[in-house]
């Protein structure tokens, strides 16, 4: 069927009741004058009417209440994605929560960091001796006592440290000997 090309789409839309009002009058005038286009319109109208009729004759069913219940359950959800408008992917949320947990754990770990044992000797290293100060020996003895309280190894480490500092001169050796003897039970 040869129809007028410029009207073909408009005729189809008219048959589908989808043509704009301002074009309808012109197309109807053309249909009155063109048998070929009129036949095309009739054929397309029959097709459109078949679908319109079918849409009203589809089998009718009622939705089971369990469907609504399932929808509500899915929305109330277990699924965080099921909130309206939630466009943040689930993996991103989980990663964010995990990052926050790791940061908190790391902060706690830093707060309660154990003191390394190698620092004991340094902490307990007595002050360098100052001449004329009467409390130097007693201060050193306190330091040695503290080291012994930690462990015999700590005291040994401290004394070796002092020995290394004094280059095994007699005076420091005397102090070491005195410290050891004063600490003996």
């Amino acid at each position: 069927m040869k129809t007028c090309a410029r009207y073909r789409e408009s005729i189809a839309l008219l048959a589908a009741a989808s043509l704009e009002a301002r074009e309808t009058a012109e197309v109807k005038r053309h249909l009155e004058q063109c048998p070929s286009c009129r036949a095309y319109f009739q054929e397309t109208s029959v097709l459109c009417d078949s679908h319109t009729t079918a849409s009203r004759q589809l089998p009718s069913e009622e939705v089971s209440p369990r469907i609504y219940a399932r929808v509500a359950s899915a929305i109330r959800g277990r699924d965080p994605r099921s909130m309206p408008g939630s466009g943040i992917p689930l993996w991103l949320r989980i990663a964010s929560v995990a990052a926050v947990v790791l940061m908190i754990a790391g902060w706690f770990a830093l707060l309660h960091r154990p003191t390394p044992p190698t620092q004991i000797a340094g902490e307990l290293t007595p002050e360098p001796e100052r001449k004329g100060e009467p409390d130097t020996v007693s201060a050193n003895l306190i330091t040695y006592r503290l080291a012994l309280n930690r462990s015999p190894e700590a005291l040994d480490q401290l004394l070796n440290h002092e020995a290394a500092r004094s280059n095994f001169s007699s005076e420091p050796s005397f102090r070491i000997t005195m410290a050891r003897s004063s600490l003996d039970p």
Binding site: L58, P59, S60, E61, E62, V63, I67, Y68, V71
Partner: peptide, 14 residues
């Protein structure tokens, strides 16, 4: 959902 469910089900079945 309840307002449109039955009509939608008809479409889905078809």
């Amino acid at each position: 959902c309840r307002q449109h469910g039955d009509r939608l089900l008809c479409q889905a079945i078809a």
